[in-house]
Design a protein around this nucleic acid. Structure first.
Lengths: 150, 150
DNA sequence: ATCGCTGCAAAACGTTTGCACCATC
DNA sequence: GATGGTGCAAACGTTTTGCAGCGAT
């Protein structure tokens, strides 16, 4: 639950020029429970700014990432954007493609990072933890559906 | 250390037609310590089969993934391929782009998965754990290099 | 001899870039 | 009024697809 005002002042604080499009794009990503793809962000923003283009969405997302408001999650087909910047795991449904944060396990992600940090001479800067599987809906549909429907 | 014969019989066992190109592509991925990109696989295979094309490499990698010999690791710019199918973490250098398996932490990845599996109603099928940072080489170069060289 | 893989070319797709006009500061 | 963001169009790089000839079975 982040207000437009909060987002707006955050952007201004970072010396970023504030436009209605940027505010709308930021709000879509920040207030989406899921991790929307660029096209999803594009179409949601289009409801308010019918003439907005993908180029603007891409450019704005890059700016928002640079000031630390969102994170890019590159996937095979297209990138999604995440407003949760703390170490956490994502649950990716291989059925419907939905992506959601795992409700628990944040500390384990941090623990794993700490452990790897001491046992390797690697300077850690970030991480990406995705678990693939079937969300409740898709798992259900999968189990109750015969291979060859009559 | 996997021999061509072992790879060959694995492919034959799966009912996959065995060609010299496929053998070479499989060997490159399986016997590469790192996780080569498609273009890297392409150029390594080209040393032995100068007329091989990217289309063949892509098609073969898809087949190899289907029979469970390799895994695709999609990155922002291009996909890499990994022959280590057990749950593990990757160390991705943001300086040089290299990708290597973390030597420890496999059990923690499995533990995290187990914990998430009981606390969510998600049917797990796989995972991808990447840690981003600076490899020893790039970290060194970064620390010993002034921002503005004279 | 059959089936399907290879190599070639073209298409498809997400993302990036160049530029003139316009809005924010 | 100056700077830089927007929208439009074209470019780019990776991946996918269609197809004829050839190689593995």
């Amino acid at each position: 639950m982040t207000t437009q005002d909060e987002l707006g002042s955050h952007l201004k604080t970072m010396g970023i020029r504030l436009t209605p499009q940027r505010l709308a794009i930021a709000e879509v990503v920040v207030n989406s429970g899921d991790h929307p793809s660029v096209k999803e962000i594009f179409s949601r923003v289009k409801e308010f700014f019918p003439y907005v283009t993908l180029a603007t969405v891409y450019s704005t997302l890059t700016v928002l990432e640079k000031v630390g408001i969102v994170r890019e999650l590159p996937f095979q087909k297209q990138s999604r954007y995440d407003a949760n910047l703390s170490p956490h795991a994502n649950l990716v449904c291989v059925g419907c493609g939905s992506v959601h944060d795992a409700d628990v396990g944040q500390s384990m992600v941090a623990d794993l990072r700490d452990k790897l940090e001491v046992s390797s001479n690697f300077e850690f800067a970030g991480q990406r933890v995705d678990f693939y599987g079937w969300c409740p809906n898709c798992a259900n549909r999968r189990n109750h559906q015969t291979e060859s429907p009559s």
